[in-house]
Design a protein around this nucleic acid. Structure first.
Length: 929
RNA sequence: GGUCACAUAGCUCAGCGGUAGAGCACUGCGUUCACAUCGUAGGGGUCACAGGUUCAAAUCCUGUUGUGACCACCA
């Protein structure tokens, strides 16, 4: 015996992966459409029906800061299943691996690391700092690739790209320059979300609003009725604010135009306390009369809404914050240099002592934080580079509306549309160092030039000024998502018109989480359609979020993270992948627990044990197996081939529809309930008899196909068994261990053709199916009566419910012949001593088993009393009566008969049969009593 | 405030017009040699509620209630 007790994943996964790699590389060669005709060519027989196009997935590039977490494992498993399924079915497949430089995240980490060594970024300067980041990237950047290998990702790692490699950098700058020259990128002074600790602008998308307790200060602003006179101390307007420290930047007071309470004040001036600035009282729809006092203080430099009001009313912008959110020189001296928190306290004190605070209210409001750094945001007016996203959004909406990109599940397109239709200018610049530096050069007078290289910029400057001027490059870098947005074509060496770009773009599929739709999916569509004139991918599979078993988000601080690396160590990669696949239900958050992985491991052991059985009985797999439509003599074999056909058809459908949860369900059901419980159990008595050779052949074939079908989900154990049970391995006593050769791997094996069976074969599986139902009934009865499996009972075929039917004699002859030919396994499954098909003797105390109209007597087991039998019979009768009632109602429905006659007929026939069964049972019951 | 989901067995979830399904949990029986990481038999649900469409609704539509997510929101 060569197979061990169970699959030793620790020992073989890596070996198998290494053996797979050459096939993975060979099947992902992009030049598939130029068939060489060379039989040794790895693409032979591939790629074909798809005009030579690759099945391509661009894998979402993980951050260089990243370590494989359960979310990566999930999304990667889904993608790898897709790749493996397509590969098995003969296509060239390509998964584009890569890593993202993750600007802000990486800079934070390296800065912290350096800070621990007592080095500050500012001190060492940009160049040295960047060297440090690259050094750090080389040291720790690629560990996630090894983790993905361990997960079995079947991609050609030599094609990996980094978002900041030289070619990527050139492409990103090229994209920027083109967009700039097309008038879509501009520099503007606008209000942005500013992180005062990182000292950079960040994206709206990275801002998380948190509900917090806060205070609403009601502050009196005196009114100046006549600009030539001073304010009347008795006349004032009360504004309500949560941020009194920003009043130093107030340049207006705003009320709603229809608000009766304040209409008389519109056009007059108000005096901002503490700074004594006279500001206009303006009317604007943005002011909500219901909120606060209905009066808004307008600080264009400190609030998005105020900034817009300021634009509408042409208000002055008074900046009051430094880049670290301390107050600047534009505030009265006593407040300068204070932090915003301290300034708030001081401002409120000053206002209170002046009697200007009318009321302080406790409220709950939402406050914006940087999701990444956790820092409270400070809106600030700064110069930034913007992309006019609105212009790109139109076409990006169209392609989804036209169905050129399909979201799975479909409803996510609403989220996409919603965002696209309200799109804001995309702030591209970040005030950090790690990333693609913006390709803009400034002349001393502030004039700037956009070019991909410094030389080109210098040339532009020369043309502009008529002489050489010193140029200084913009210090800022681009938002990380800008390069990500170019990723599907950038990775194929755009802007060069490469063959791989033509073959791989558009991608077939993108797999990602819903949290990335705005950040990434939307940007790829906008930029892809813009630069490539075609969608970046045809389908977007949005997978759910993995939560813990209680439905909570996993987080390190909660300590509820499930580490996929631990799972893979403990239960094996196959068990981990199988579990993740079984959870891949589109559209709903999912709950994950270690227990589920344990169950999967147990199931894999079940597969293993089936293999052990086959091996023990000399059922060796033939690697040349091609189809499953041969007629078989033994009914059990016909049945399993039929079941295999159904299994393959259904599972292929689920793979095609990306329903991997249903794929795993099918795999479990087939292996457990069909292959093990029925087929192997029956086979045990058939391997010695007349049909032994046929049975070995069929068993091997079916199990081999099962391994193929399961391989995309559980590649390692299936690959191992495929080789371990292969005919050629049956070498004189050579120990298999460590000899995994990896030839003719499942990885590249096509499934057998699924053909409809010949008629005589169909008869075979139908009869066999009847007998399976019969043995199920027998087992059920035995279970209810607690009859020991050791007690073999005799079964007699008594009669058919409708003996008067014209084809009764033929039917009976067929069944009798079948039972005679297949008695051994039927007896084995039903724990019978024999089946008497003449059935003339009657045992009044026998149990009646009725299946599809056939009535059998089961010899009554010893020590069984009549009451038990009566009770079983009456239960059966009750069930039949319930069925009849429903069927009666249905068949009496004339509209139903008219609308769906075929189905009605089936129901009607069924009803007749069941009614006859009830009559039989009634007769039997009267015999008993 | 806007949008989108979701409510089915004790738990986690499939099913999405034609007699309610799985896994786990639970109960009985069982180590008969592929498998105790197991086998075998079984119990358990008026499919949130109310209307409507239909010959027929868990399934389609409308509303109600509850839950969740996302977007907007620093008065």
């Amino acid at each position: 015996m060569r197979l061990e007790k169970s699959f030793n994943h620790a020992k073989y996964e890596q070996v198998i992966y290494e053996k797979s790699e050459k096939h993975i590389v060979a099947t992902s060669q992009f030049a598939a459409h130029s068939h060489s005709g060379d039989p040794s060519s790895p693409q032979e027989g591939r790629a074909d029906a798809t005009d030579g196009r690759c099945f391509t997935i661009t894998l979402p590039p993980p951050n260089i800061t990243g370590c494989l977490h359960i979310g990566h494992a999930f999304t990667s498993t889904i993608q790898d299943i897709m790749l493996r399924f397509q590969r098995q079915n003969g296509r060239i497949v390509f998964g584009q691996p890569g890593i993202d430089h993750a600007g802000i995240a990486t800079q934070i980490i390296v800065e912290k690391k350096l800070a621990n060594e007592g080095i500050s970024r500012k001190e060492i300067g940009r160049e040295v700092f960047l060297k440090e980041v690259w050094k750090w990237k080389e040291e720790s950047g690629c560990q996630i690739f090894n983790q993905l290998r361990k997960l079995g990702m079947s991609v050609d790692w030599s094609t990996s790209r980094f978002t900041l490699d030289p070619e990527a950098n050139a492409a990103v700058l090229e994209a920027f320059v083109r967009l700039y020259r097309d008038g879509l990128i501009y520099r503007a002074q606008r209000i942005v979300n500013w992180d005062p600790i990182l000292k950079t602008a960040i994206s709206d998308l990275e801002v998380m609003n948190k509900e917090e307790k806060g205070k609403l200060w009601h502050i009196k602003y005196r009114i100046v009725a006549d600009p030539d006179k001073s304010a009347n101390p008795e006349e004032y307007i009360v504004v309500a604010t949560t941020r009194p420290e920003t009043l130093f930047g107030d340049t207006a007071v705003c009320v709603h135009p229809q608000d009766q309470r304040y209409s008389h004040l519109i056009g007059k001036l108000a005096v901002v306390p503490l700074v004594n600035r006279r500001v206009p009282i303006v009317a604007d729809e943005a002011c909500d009369p219901q909120k606060g006092t209905g009066v808004l203080k307008v600080t264009p430099a400190c609030s998005f809404e105020d900034f817009e009001i300021g634009q509408r009313h042409n208000l002055e912008i008074v900046e009051i914050m430094n880049e670290d959110a301390t107050l600047n020189a534009n505030v009265p001296e006593q407040f300068r240099g204070l932090s915003r928190e301290a300034a708030r306290v001081e401002a409120v004190n000053a206002l209170s002592s002046g009697g200007l605070v009318e009321k302080i209210e406790d409220i709950v409001h939402s406050v914006p934080y940087n999701d990444r750094s956790g820092c409270l945001m400070e809106p600030r007016v700064t110069y930034q580079w913007f992309l006019d996203a609105e212009k790109l959004a139109g076409p990006a909406i169209d392609v989804v509306e036209e169905g050129k990109i399909k979201f799975i599940p479909d409803q996510w397109k609403n989220t996409y549309f919603n965002w696209m239709r309200n799109i804001q200018p995309w702030c591209l610049s970040r005030q950090i160092w790690w990333g693609h530096q913006i390709p803009i050069w400034y002349a001393p007078d502030g004039e700037f030039f956009c070019a991909t290289t410094e030389e080109e910029a210098a040339e532009l400057a020369r043309q502009h000024f008529g002489r050489d001027v010193p140029l200084k490059r913009d210090e800022d870098v681009l938002d990380t998502w800008f390069s990500s947005g170019l990723w599907p074509f950038l990775t194929q060496y755009w802007p060069d018109d490469t063959e791989m770009l033509r073959v791989r773009y558009p991608n077939d599929m993108l797999v990602t989480g819903f949290d990335i739709i705005f950040f990434w999916v939307a940007r790829m569509v906008m930029l892809g359609v813009y630069f490539m004139k075609d969608v970046p991918f045809r389908e977007v599979y949005i997978h759910p979020l993995i939560r813990d078993e209680k439905g909570q988000k996993m987080s390190k601080s909660k300590g509820n993270v499930i580490d996929p690396l631990v799972l893979m160590e403990k239960y094996g990669t196959d068990a981990t992948r199988f579990t993740l696949a079984s959870l891949a239900i589109p559209g709903r958050d999912i709950r994950m627990s270690e227990e589920l992985v344990e169950n999967s491991r147990n199931f894999i052991t079940k597969i293993w044990n089936a293999a052990v059985f086959l091996e023990m009985n000399g059922c060796m797999l033939s690697k040349s197996q091609k189809e499953c439509d041969k007629a078989r003599l033994l009914g059990l074999n016909a049945l399993i081939l039929h079941e295999l056909r159904e299994f393959m058809k259904a599972t292929k459908g689920h793979y095609d529809n990306h329903r991997f949860d249903l794929v795993t369900q099918n795999i479990i059901k087939f292996l457990r309930e069909v292959f093990c419980d029925v087929y192997i159990e029956g086979l045990k008595v058939c391997l010695a008899g007349a049909h032994a050779a046929e049975s070995r052949e069929v068993a091997s074939f079916v199990f081999g196909e099962f391994l193929k079908v399961s391989n995309p989900v559980i590649p390692f154990v299936t690959e191992y068994l495929w080789e371990a049970l292969a005919e050629k391995c049956e070498r004189g006593g050579v120990e298999f261990v460590g000899e995994f050769e990896g030839t003719d791997m499942l990885l590249i094996s096509k499934w057998a053709a699924i053909k409809e069976p010949a008629t005589e074969d169909e008869e075979g599986w139908k009869q066999a199916d009847l007998c399976i139902k019969l043995t199920d009934e027998i087992r059920s009865v035995r279970g209810l009566l607690n009859v020991s499996p050791a007690a073999k009972l005799k079964l007699m075929l008594k009669t058919y419910v409708d003996e008067k039917a014209a084809d009764f004699a033929t039917k009976k002859e067929t069944l009798v012949r079948f039972i005679n030919n297949n008695a051994n396994w039927i007896c084995a499954l039903g724990k019978l001593s024999c089946i008497d098909v003449d059935g003339e003797q009657q045992n009044v105390l026998g149990l009646r088993i009725i299946v599809e109209g056939w009535v059998f007597y089961l010899e009554s087991p010893p020590n069984i009393n009549k009451d038990d039998i009566v009770s079983i019979i009456s239960r059966k009768k009750e069930a039949l009566l319930r069925d009849c009632e429903l069927l009666q109602k249905k068949t009496e429905n004339l509209a139903y008969k008219e609308a769906r006659f075929e189905q009605w007929s089936v129901d009607h026939e069924n009803l007749t049969l069941k009614q006859q069964e009830i009559e039989k049972i009634n007769a039997i019951s009267s015999e008993l009593t």
